[in-house]
């Protein structure tokens, strides 16, 4: 059972949050993980999530928004079920990162930070994701796909379309 009445989160996540705040010398330390985990569950950080997290950590909502808006993985608008994040930073760029991005745009018919009409995919050009030696790389949600070519991208996207992709959370 959650410590917060009427939590908007699933019982599992609420319980996780209850636990999370006990781990640190100062409970506010749970803020960044909570925002990310809330986003993982809801798809984005909703106003309701901001409120509840502020309440859980005894913070002002403004304070939560200040932090939320700082981190580039956190978003306040829904993304697609599968958020395709293509790295175009230097190592990837040298090995075709922009080609991969271009290919994704064409295949998905959407641009940076856009969502397909069916809500299945969204696309994002991201900074270095720490896969430089296996470039070019992208992440679909949290799952890494590296050494990409346009053909491999097609396979990956198809896999998710069929619901067979991993969904690390």
């Amino acid at each position: 059972m959650s410590n917060v009445a009427n939590t908007i989160f699933s019982p599992e996540l609420a319980a996780r949050f209850d636990h999370l705040v006990t781990l640190y010398p100062v409970k506010r330390s749970a803020l960044v993980p909570m925002l990310l985990y809330a986003q993982d569950e809801i798809g984005y950080v909703s106003d309701a999530a901001v409120s509840e997290i502020a309440q859980r950590l005894s913070l002002e909502e403004l304070d939560v928004r200040n932090v939320l808006s700082y981190y580039s993985m956190l978003r306040t608008k829904p993304a697609g079920k599968y958020n395709v994040q293509v790295c175009t930073n230097i190592s990837c760029m040298l090995r075709g990162g922009y080609t991969v991005l271009e290919h994704c745009k064409q295949q998905l018919g959407i641009g940076h930070k856009e969502v397909t009409p069916d809500g299945l995919f969204s696309l994002e050009e991201v900074e270095c994701i720490g896969a430089c030696c296996w470039a070019p790389a992208m992440q679909v949600n949290y799952d890494f796909h590296d050494d990409l070519t346009p053909e491999k991208v097609d396979v990956v996207l198809e896999m998710y379309r069929k619901g067979q992709g991993k969904d690390v959370k």
Partner: peptide, 23 residues
């Protein structure tokens, strides 16, 4: 009072008040 904060980062950083437009 804590009615003002900083949102976004880098050159997008702005001072923001505690009642955001969308609310």
């Amino acid at each position: 009072v804590f009615a003002l904060g900083i949102q976004n980062r880098g050159s997008s950083a702005v001072i923001a008040p505690n009642v955001p437009a969308h609310l």
